[in-house]
Design a protein around this nucleic acid. Structure first.
Lengths: 211, 211
DNA sequence: CAGTCAGTTGACTGATCATTCAAGTCGCGC
DNA sequence: GCGCGACTTGAATGATCAGTCAACTGACTG
Protein backbone atom coordinates (compact mmCIF):
# COMPACT_ATOMS: atom_id res chain seq x y z
CA UNK A 1 0.00 0.00 0.00
CA UNK A 2 1.45 3.33 -1.01
CA UNK A 3 0.85 6.07 1.50
CA UNK A 4 3.77 8.41 0.91
CA UNK A 5 2.15 11.76 1.65
CA UNK A 6 3.99 14.00 -0.79
CA UNK A 7 6.72 12.36 -2.80
CA UNK A 8 9.24 14.91 -3.99
CA UNK A 9 8.42 13.79 -7.52
CA UNK A 10 11.60 15.24 -8.84
CA UNK A 11 10.84 14.11 -12.33
CA UNK A 12 7.63 16.07 -12.53
CA UNK A 13 9.28 19.12 -11.03
CA UNK A 14 11.85 18.97 -13.79
CA UNK A 15 9.24 18.59 -16.49
CA UNK A 16 7.14 21.47 -15.17
CA UNK A 17 10.16 23.72 -14.87
CA UNK A 18 11.16 22.80 -18.39
CA UNK A 19 7.66 23.56 -19.61
CA UNK A 20 7.93 27.08 -18.24
CA UNK A 21 11.46 27.58 -19.37
CA UNK A 22 11.09 26.30 -22.92
CA UNK A 23 8.03 28.47 -23.30
CA UNK A 24 9.79 31.56 -21.96
CA UNK A 25 13.15 31.21 -23.66
CA UNK A 26 12.80 28.46 -26.22
CA UNK A 27 14.50 25.09 -26.16
CA UNK A 28 17.88 26.23 -27.43
CA UNK A 29 18.18 29.30 -25.24
CA UNK A 30 17.11 27.53 -22.07
CA UNK A 31 20.26 25.98 -20.66
CA UNK A 32 20.37 22.88 -18.53
CA UNK A 33 21.81 25.08 -15.80
CA UNK A 34 18.71 27.31 -15.97
CA UNK A 35 16.57 24.24 -15.76
CA UNK A 36 18.41 22.82 -12.77
CA UNK A 37 18.05 26.10 -10.92
CA UNK A 38 14.36 26.52 -11.68
CA UNK A 39 13.55 22.92 -10.75
CA UNK A 40 15.84 23.10 -7.72
CA UNK A 41 17.56 19.90 -8.68
CA UNK A 42 21.12 18.76 -9.19
CA UNK A 43 22.54 17.74 -12.50
CA UNK A 44 22.86 14.14 -11.44
CA UNK A 45 19.17 13.91 -10.61
CA UNK A 46 18.15 15.24 -13.95
CA UNK A 47 20.37 12.75 -15.72
CA UNK A 48 19.07 10.03 -13.50
CA UNK A 49 15.61 10.49 -14.98
CA UNK A 50 16.47 11.67 -18.47
CA UNK A 51 19.21 10.57 -20.84
CA UNK A 52 19.63 14.16 -22.01
CA UNK A 53 18.09 17.57 -22.53
CA UNK A 54 16.15 16.48 -25.57
CA UNK A 55 14.40 13.79 -23.57
CA UNK A 56 13.17 16.45 -21.19
CA UNK A 57 11.67 18.15 -24.22
CA UNK A 58 9.97 14.92 -25.19
CA UNK A 59 8.45 14.67 -21.73
CA UNK A 60 7.25 18.26 -21.96
CA UNK A 61 5.62 17.68 -25.33
CA UNK A 62 4.09 14.49 -24.03
CA UNK A 63 2.63 16.36 -21.09
CA UNK A 64 1.12 19.01 -23.37
CA UNK A 65 -0.31 16.25 -25.48
CA UNK A 66 -1.80 14.30 -22.61
CA UNK A 67 -3.10 17.42 -20.89
CA UNK A 68 -4.71 19.18 -23.82
CA UNK A 69 -8.25 18.39 -22.68
CA UNK A 70 -7.80 18.78 -18.98
CA UNK A 71 -5.51 21.78 -19.08
CA UNK A 72 -6.75 23.64 -22.15
CA UNK A 73 -9.98 22.56 -23.79
CA UNK A 74 -12.19 21.63 -20.85
CA UNK A 75 -11.59 24.88 -18.95
CA UNK A 76 -12.14 26.97 -22.07
CA UNK A 77 -15.28 25.16 -23.12
CA UNK A 78 -16.83 25.02 -19.69
CA UNK A 79 -20.32 26.44 -20.04
CA UNK A 80 -20.13 26.86 -23.78
CA UNK A 81 -22.27 24.39 -25.67
CA UNK A 82 -22.51 25.86 -29.11
CA UNK A 83 -19.83 24.05 -31.08
CA UNK A 84 -18.99 26.97 -33.34
CA UNK A 85 -18.72 29.31 -30.39
CA UNK A 86 -16.33 26.80 -28.87
CA UNK A 87 -13.99 27.32 -31.78
CA UNK A 88 -13.93 31.03 -31.20
CA UNK A 89 -13.80 30.66 -27.44
CA UNK A 90 -10.55 28.76 -27.89
CA UNK A 91 -9.20 31.53 -30.08
CA UNK A 92 -10.32 34.05 -27.47
CA UNK A 93 -8.27 32.14 -24.92
CA UNK A 94 -5.17 32.67 -27.02
CA UNK A 95 -6.06 36.34 -27.26
CA UNK A 96 -6.08 36.41 -23.47
CA UNK A 97 -2.63 34.88 -23.40
CA UNK A 98 -1.41 37.48 -25.85
CA UNK A 99 -2.73 40.30 -23.71
CA UNK A 100 -1.47 38.80 -20.46
CA UNK A 101 2.06 38.57 -21.82
CA UNK A 102 2.17 42.03 -23.40
CA UNK A 103 2.08 40.47 -26.81
CA UNK A 104 5.11 38.30 -26.27
CA UNK A 105 3.04 35.14 -26.17
CA UNK A 106 4.02 32.35 -28.48
CA UNK A 107 2.22 29.06 -28.80
CA UNK A 108 4.65 26.69 -27.12
CA UNK A 109 4.18 24.04 -29.78
CA UNK A 110 4.34 26.41 -32.72
CA UNK A 111 7.44 28.15 -31.43
CA UNK A 112 9.24 24.86 -30.95
CA UNK A 113 8.11 23.71 -34.38
CA UNK A 114 9.85 26.64 -36.01
CA UNK A 115 12.78 26.86 -33.63
CA UNK A 116 14.01 23.32 -34.18
CA UNK A 117 15.17 23.14 -37.75
CA UNK A 118 16.21 19.53 -37.76
CA UNK A 119 14.27 17.94 -34.94
CA UNK A 120 14.88 14.29 -34.25
CA UNK A 121 11.96 12.24 -35.52
CA UNK A 122 10.43 11.61 -32.08
CA UNK A 123 10.37 15.34 -31.37
CA UNK A 124 8.78 16.17 -34.70
CA UNK A 125 6.21 13.43 -34.23
CA UNK A 126 5.21 14.76 -30.82
CA UNK A 127 4.89 18.28 -32.20
CA UNK A 128 2.67 16.92 -34.95
CA UNK A 129 0.68 14.88 -32.43
CA UNK A 130 0.02 18.03 -30.43
CA UNK A 131 -1.22 19.84 -33.52
CA UNK A 132 -3.36 16.84 -34.38
CA UNK A 133 -4.94 16.68 -30.95
CA UNK A 134 -5.81 20.36 -31.23
CA UNK A 135 -7.28 20.15 -34.70
CA UNK A 136 -9.14 16.95 -33.91
CA UNK A 137 -10.88 18.72 -31.05
CA UNK A 138 -11.85 21.53 -33.42
CA UNK A 139 -12.92 19.03 -36.02
CA UNK A 140 -15.17 17.46 -33.42
CA UNK A 141 -16.83 20.87 -32.94
CA UNK A 142 -17.27 21.29 -36.67
CA UNK A 143 -18.89 17.89 -36.93
CA UNK A 144 -21.14 18.77 -34.02
CA UNK A 145 -22.18 21.87 -35.94
CA UNK A 146 -23.79 19.43 -38.37
CA UNK A 147 -26.01 21.08 -40.97
CA UNK A 148 -25.06 24.59 -39.89
CA UNK A 149 -22.09 24.19 -42.18
CA UNK A 150 -22.49 23.21 -45.83
CA UNK A 151 -22.87 19.48 -46.14
CA UNK A 152 -19.76 19.00 -48.26
CA UNK A 153 -17.48 21.02 -45.97
CA UNK A 154 -14.14 19.28 -45.37
CA UNK A 155 -14.23 19.63 -41.62
CA UNK A 156 -10.74 18.30 -41.02
CA UNK A 157 -9.30 20.83 -43.45
CA UNK A 158 -11.33 23.63 -41.95
CA UNK A 159 -10.18 22.65 -38.47
CA UNK A 160 -6.58 22.77 -39.63
CA UNK A 161 -7.31 26.18 -41.11
CA UNK A 162 -8.40 27.36 -37.69
CA UNK A 163 -5.05 26.25 -36.30
CA UNK A 164 -3.27 27.91 -39.19
CA UNK A 165 -5.08 31.15 -38.42
CA UNK A 166 -4.26 30.94 -34.73
CA UNK A 167 -0.58 30.19 -35.25
CA UNK A 168 -0.18 32.82 -37.92
CA UNK A 169 -2.06 35.36 -35.86
CA UNK A 170 0.01 34.66 -32.77
CA UNK A 171 3.19 35.02 -34.77
CA UNK A 172 2.22 38.42 -36.13
CA UNK A 173 0.89 39.68 -32.81
CA UNK A 174 4.17 38.84 -31.19
CA UNK A 175 6.27 40.33 -33.94
CA UNK A 176 4.30 43.56 -34.00
CA UNK A 177 3.83 43.59 -30.22
CA UNK A 178 0.20 44.31 -31.00
CA UNK A 179 -2.88 42.09 -30.70
CA UNK A 180 -4.44 43.67 -33.78
CA UNK A 181 -3.09 41.25 -36.39
CA UNK A 182 -4.43 38.39 -34.30
CA UNK A 183 -7.81 40.08 -33.91
CA UNK A 184 -7.97 40.79 -37.61
CA UNK A 185 -7.19 37.20 -38.44
CA UNK A 186 -9.90 35.93 -36.10
CA UNK A 187 -12.34 38.47 -37.55
CA UNK A 188 -11.57 37.20 -41.05
CA UNK A 189 -12.13 33.67 -39.90
CA UNK A 190 -15.42 34.70 -38.29
CA UNK A 191 -16.46 36.22 -41.55
CA UNK A 192 -15.55 33.03 -43.36
CA UNK A 193 -17.62 30.98 -40.92
CA UNK A 194 -20.57 33.36 -41.28
CA UNK A 195 -20.51 32.87 -45.00
CA UNK A 196 -20.31 29.12 -44.64
CA UNK A 197 -23.29 29.18 -42.32
CA UNK A 198 -25.22 31.43 -44.68
CA UNK A 199 -24.58 29.01 -47.49
CA UNK A 200 -25.74 26.13 -45.32
CA UNK A 201 -29.01 27.78 -44.34
CA UNK A 202 -29.86 30.26 -47.05
CA UNK A 203 -32.72 32.61 -46.33
CA UNK A 204 -33.78 30.91 -43.13
CA UNK A 205 -34.72 33.04 -40.17
CA UNK A 206 -32.63 32.60 -37.04
CA UNK A 207 -33.96 29.75 -34.94
CA UNK A 208 -33.76 31.82 -31.82
CA UNK A 209 -34.51 35.48 -31.57
CA UNK A 210 -31.69 35.75 -29.01
CA UNK A 211 -29.96 39.09 -29.51
CA UNK B 1 36.99 57.31 -61.15
CA UNK B 2 36.39 53.95 -59.55
CA UNK B 3 37.35 51.07 -61.74
CA UNK B 4 38.17 48.30 -59.27
CA UNK B 5 37.18 45.26 -61.32
CA UNK B 6 35.82 42.92 -58.65
CA UNK B 7 36.32 43.90 -55.04
CA UNK B 8 36.21 40.87 -52.79
CA UNK B 9 33.25 42.45 -51.02
CA UNK B 10 33.82 40.45 -47.93
CA UNK B 11 30.92 42.06 -46.19
CA UNK B 12 28.39 40.90 -48.74
CA UNK B 13 29.89 37.42 -48.75
CA UNK B 14 29.32 37.27 -45.01
CA UNK B 15 25.75 38.51 -45.27
CA UNK B 16 24.88 36.05 -48.02
CA UNK B 17 26.43 33.17 -46.13
CA UNK B 18 24.52 34.20 -43.03
CA UNK B 19 21.32 34.37 -45.04
CA UNK B 20 21.74 30.76 -46.06
CA UNK B 21 22.89 29.60 -42.69
CA UNK B 22 20.24 31.29 -40.60
CA UNK B 23 17.61 29.92 -42.94
CA UNK B 24 19.01 26.39 -42.76
CA UNK B 25 19.81 26.16 -39.07
CA UNK B 26 18.26 29.19 -37.44
CA UNK B 27 20.07 32.07 -35.81
CA UNK B 28 20.88 30.35 -32.54
CA UNK B 29 22.06 27.07 -34.02
CA UNK B 30 24.23 28.70 -36.63
CA UNK B 31 27.55 29.36 -34.95
CA UNK B 32 29.95 32.11 -35.87
CA UNK B 33 32.43 29.36 -36.73
CA UNK B 34 29.93 27.90 -39.24
CA UNK B 35 29.49 31.33 -40.70
CA UNK B 36 33.20 31.96 -41.01
CA UNK B 37 33.67 28.69 -42.81
CA UNK B 38 30.78 29.18 -45.22
CA UNK B 39 31.80 32.74 -46.04
CA UNK B 40 35.47 31.73 -46.22
CA UNK B 41 36.47 34.56 -43.94
CA UNK B 42 38.47 34.93 -40.75
CA UNK B 43 37.02 35.97 -37.47
CA UNK B 44 38.85 39.28 -37.52
CA UNK B 45 37.31 40.22 -40.85
CA UNK B 46 33.82 39.51 -39.67
CA UNK B 47 34.33 41.59 -36.57
CA UNK B 48 35.87 44.30 -38.67
CA UNK B 49 32.54 44.78 -40.46
CA UNK B 50 30.12 43.82 -37.71
CA UNK B 51 30.19 44.51 -33.99
CA UNK B 52 28.74 41.08 -33.32
CA UNK B 53 26.69 38.16 -34.53
CA UNK B 54 23.43 39.98 -34.00
CA UNK B 55 24.49 42.77 -36.31
CA UNK B 56 25.01 40.21 -39.05
CA UNK B 57 21.40 39.21 -38.47
CA UNK B 58 20.34 42.83 -38.82
CA UNK B 59 22.15 43.04 -42.14
CA UNK B 60 20.44 39.85 -43.30
CA UNK B 61 17.00 41.13 -42.35
CA UNK B 62 17.77 44.43 -44.01
CA UNK B 63 18.74 42.62 -47.20
CA UNK B 64 15.50 40.63 -47.19
CA UNK B 65 13.63 43.85 -46.67
CA UNK B 66 15.34 45.74 -49.43
CA UNK B 67 15.19 42.83 -51.83
CA UNK B 68 11.58 41.81 -51.41
CA UNK B 69 10.47 43.26 -54.75
CA UNK B 70 13.48 42.37 -56.81
CA UNK B 71 14.11 38.96 -55.30
CA UNK B 72 10.60 37.77 -54.50
CA UNK B 73 7.64 39.73 -55.81
CA UNK B 74 8.76 40.80 -59.28
CA UNK B 75 9.86 37.31 -60.36
CA UNK B 76 6.67 35.75 -59.02
CA UNK B 77 4.37 38.32 -60.58
CA UNK B 78 6.07 38.45 -63.92
CA UNK B 79 3.38 37.87 -66.52
CA UNK B 80 0.54 37.84 -64.03
CA UNK B 81 -1.64 40.91 -64.23
CA UNK B 82 -4.75 39.90 -62.34
CA UNK B 83 -4.23 41.29 -58.85
CA UNK B 84 -6.08 38.50 -57.08
CA UNK B 85 -4.19 35.86 -59.01
CA UNK B 86 -1.03 37.60 -57.89
CA UNK B 87 -1.95 36.88 -54.30
CA UNK B 88 -2.30 33.20 -55.01
CA UNK B 89 0.74 33.14 -57.27
CA UNK B 90 2.78 34.29 -54.31
CA UNK B 91 1.32 31.55 -52.16
CA UNK B 92 2.07 29.08 -54.95
CA UNK B 93 5.69 30.20 -54.80
CA UNK B 94 5.84 29.21 -51.15
CA UNK B 95 4.31 25.88 -52.08
CA UNK B 96 7.17 25.40 -54.51
CA UNK B 97 9.66 26.12 -51.75
CA UNK B 98 7.94 23.58 -49.54
CA UNK B 99 8.15 20.91 -52.21
CA UNK B 100 11.72 21.74 -53.14
CA UNK B 101 12.86 21.31 -49.57
CA UNK B 102 10.96 18.10 -48.86
CA UNK B 103 8.65 20.00 -46.56
CA UNK B 104 11.39 21.36 -44.36
CA UNK B 105 10.91 24.88 -45.67
CA UNK B 106 10.36 27.60 -43.16
CA UNK B 107 9.75 31.23 -43.98
CA UNK B 108 13.05 32.81 -42.92
CA UNK B 109 11.31 35.76 -41.32
CA UNK B 110 8.62 33.75 -39.57
CA UNK B 111 11.10 31.24 -38.21
CA UNK B 112 13.28 33.96 -36.77
CA UNK B 113 10.23 35.70 -35.36
CA UNK B 114 9.38 32.64 -33.30
CA UNK B 115 12.93 31.51 -32.59
CA UNK B 116 14.04 34.73 -30.93
CA UNK B 117 12.04 35.05 -27.76
CA UNK B 118 13.48 38.31 -26.57
CA UNK B 119 14.81 39.98 -29.66
CA UNK B 120 16.51 43.30 -29.24
CA UNK B 121 14.24 46.07 -30.47
CA UNK B 122 16.08 46.68 -33.75
CA UNK B 123 15.76 42.99 -34.64
CA UNK B 124 12.07 42.91 -33.85
CA UNK B 125 11.49 46.05 -35.82
CA UNK B 126 13.19 44.64 -38.88
CA UNK B 127 11.17 41.46 -38.62
CA UNK B 128 8.01 43.55 -38.44
CA UNK B 129 9.21 45.71 -41.34
CA UNK B 130 9.64 42.58 -43.45
CA UNK B 131 6.12 41.45 -42.65
CA UNK B 132 4.83 44.92 -43.40
CA UNK B 133 6.55 45.07 -46.78
CA UNK B 134 4.97 41.73 -47.66
CA UNK B 135 1.48 42.64 -46.56
CA UNK B 136 1.67 46.06 -48.15
CA UNK B 137 2.41 44.44 -51.47
CA UNK B 138 -0.62 42.19 -51.01
CA UNK B 139 -2.69 45.13 -49.90
CA UNK B 140 -1.73 46.86 -53.11
CA UNK B 141 -3.12 43.89 -55.04
CA UNK B 142 -6.32 43.97 -53.06
CA UNK B 143 -6.75 47.65 -53.77
CA UNK B 144 -6.07 46.99 -57.43
CA UNK B 145 -8.88 44.43 -57.33
CA UNK B 146 -11.15 47.40 -56.77
CA UNK B 147 -14.86 46.58 -56.98
CA UNK B 148 -14.25 42.86 -57.33
CA UNK B 149 -14.11 42.81 -53.55
CA UNK B 150 -16.90 44.23 -51.40
CA UNK B 151 -16.55 47.98 -51.10
CA UNK B 152 -16.18 47.97 -47.33
CA UNK B 153 -13.50 45.25 -47.27
CA UNK B 154 -10.62 46.12 -44.91
CA UNK B 155 -7.89 45.41 -47.40
CA UNK B 156 -5.02 45.86 -44.98
CA UNK B 157 -6.57 43.35 -42.59
CA UNK B 158 -7.29 40.93 -45.41
CA UNK B 159 -3.71 41.26 -46.64
CA UNK B 160 -2.45 40.45 -43.16
CA UNK B 161 -4.78 37.47 -43.14
CA UNK B 162 -3.09 36.21 -46.28
CA UNK B 163 0.25 36.39 -44.48
CA UNK B 164 -1.25 34.68 -41.45
CA UNK B 165 -2.48 31.87 -43.68
CA UNK B 166 0.89 31.50 -45.37
CA UNK B 167 2.87 31.47 -42.14
CA UNK B 168 0.50 29.09 -40.42
CA UNK B 169 0.38 26.83 -43.46
CA UNK B 170 4.14 26.73 -43.76
CA UNK B 171 4.45 25.88 -40.07
CA UNK B 172 2.06 22.95 -40.32
CA UNK B 173 3.52 21.68 -43.59
CA UNK B 174 6.93 21.59 -42.01
CA UNK B 175 5.77 19.96 -38.82
CA UNK B 176 3.81 17.28 -40.64
CA UNK B 177 6.40 16.95 -43.40
CA UNK B 178 3.46 17.15 -45.75
CA UNK B 179 2.32 19.96 -48.06
CA UNK B 180 -1.33 19.12 -47.47
CA UNK B 181 -1.98 21.43 -44.51
CA UNK B 182 -0.56 24.28 -46.57
CA UNK B 183 -2.67 23.34 -49.57
CA UNK B 184 -5.75 23.09 -47.42
CA UNK B 185 -5.12 26.50 -45.90
CA UNK B 186 -4.69 28.07 -49.33
CA UNK B 187 -7.84 26.32 -50.53
CA UNK B 188 -9.77 27.74 -47.60
CA UNK B 189 -8.42 31.17 -48.38
CA UNK B 190 -9.44 30.74 -52.03
CA UNK B 191 -12.89 29.84 -50.90
CA UNK B 192 -13.01 32.91 -48.72
CA UNK B 193 -11.94 35.10 -51.64
CA UNK B 194 -14.52 33.49 -53.93
CA UNK B 195 -17.23 34.34 -51.46
CA UNK B 196 -15.99 37.90 -51.13
CA UNK B 197 -16.04 38.26 -54.89
CA UNK B 198 -19.52 36.77 -55.11
CA UNK B 199 -20.73 39.26 -52.57
CA UNK B 200 -19.14 42.09 -54.53
CA UNK B 201 -20.74 41.10 -57.82
CA UNK B 202 -23.87 39.13 -57.05
CA UNK B 203 -25.56 37.41 -59.97
CA UNK B 204 -23.37 38.95 -62.62
CA UNK B 205 -22.22 36.74 -65.43
CA UNK B 206 -18.47 36.30 -65.86
CA UNK B 207 -17.05 39.13 -67.95
CA UNK B 208 -15.08 36.74 -70.07
CA UNK B 209 -16.21 33.34 -71.19
CA UNK B 210 -12.62 32.13 -70.91
CA UNK B 211 -12.71 28.50 -69.71
C1' DC C 1 59.92 56.12 -50.38
C1' DA C 2 57.58 57.02 -45.99
C1' DG C 3 53.18 57.12 -43.93
C1' DT C 4 48.51 55.80 -43.46
C1' DC C 5 44.80 52.93 -42.97
C1' DA C 6 41.12 49.66 -44.52
C1' DG C 7 41.14 45.11 -44.40
C1' DT C 8 43.12 40.43 -43.05
C1' DT C 9 45.15 36.74 -40.34
C1' DG C 10 44.50 33.10 -36.88
C1' DA C 11 45.79 32.03 -32.32
C1' DC C 12 43.77 33.04 -28.11
C1' DT C 13 40.37 34.02 -24.19
C1' DG C 14 37.02 33.27 -20.83
C1' DA C 15 32.34 32.05 -20.48
C1' DT C 16 29.03 28.76 -20.99
C1' DC C 17 27.41 24.54 -22.76
C1' DA C 18 25.52 19.55 -22.00
C1' DT C 19 27.01 15.74 -19.76
C1' DT C 20 29.63 12.52 -16.47
C1' DC C 21 30.70 10.28 -12.31
C1' DA C 22 32.36 8.77 -7.84
C1' DA C 23 30.73 9.32 -3.54
C1' DG C 24 27.10 9.80 -0.81
C1' DT C 25 22.03 9.43 1.52
C1' DC C 26 17.89 7.18 2.43
C1' DG C 27 14.09 3.81 2.92
C1' DC C 28 12.88 -0.86 2.79
C1' DG C 29 12.98 -6.06 2.67
C1' DC C 30 15.25 -9.62 5.05
C1' DG D 1 21.40 -4.32 11.44
C1' DC D 2 22.80 -5.55 6.88
C1' DG D 3 22.58 -5.05 2.01
C1' DC D 4 20.57 -3.20 -1.99
C1' DG D 5 18.81 -0.20 -5.23
C1' DA D 6 16.66 4.17 -6.04
C1' DC D 7 17.77 8.67 -5.83
C1' DT D 8 20.93 12.80 -4.72
C1' DT D 9 25.09 15.54 -4.55
C1' DG D 10 28.13 18.82 -6.81
C1' DA D 11 32.70 19.12 -8.63
C1' DA D 12 34.82 18.05 -12.86
C1' DT D 13 35.13 17.43 -18.01
C1' DG D 14 35.88 18.62 -22.60
C1' DA D 15 33.55 20.75 -26.32
C1' DT D 16 31.97 24.77 -28.22
C1' DC D 17 30.55 29.36 -27.94
C1' DA D 18 31.03 34.56 -29.30
C1' DG D 19 34.28 37.72 -29.31
C1' DT D 20 39.45 39.85 -28.96
C1' DC D 21 43.78 41.28 -30.45
C1' DA D 22 48.45 42.24 -31.97
C1' DA D 23 50.76 41.54 -35.97
C1' DC D 24 50.53 41.68 -40.81
C1' DT D 25 49.38 42.97 -45.97
C1' DG D 26 48.95 45.88 -49.65
C1' DA D 27 46.95 49.74 -52.03
C1' DC D 28 46.92 54.48 -52.03
C1' DT D 29 48.74 59.48 -50.95
C1' DG D 30 52.01 63.00 -50.57
Amino acid sequence: MIIQAAPPDTRMRIVLAAMELFWEKGFLSASVADLLKRADVNAGSLYHFFPGKQDVLLAVLDLYHRGIWEMLLNPVWQGIDDPIERVFALLAKYREHILQTDCTYGCPIGSLALELHEPDPPVRELLAANFSAWTEAIEQCLRAAGPRLPRNTDRAALARFVLTTMEGGVMLARTYRDPKPFDDAVAQLRDHFRRLQQQAQPAVRKKRGSK
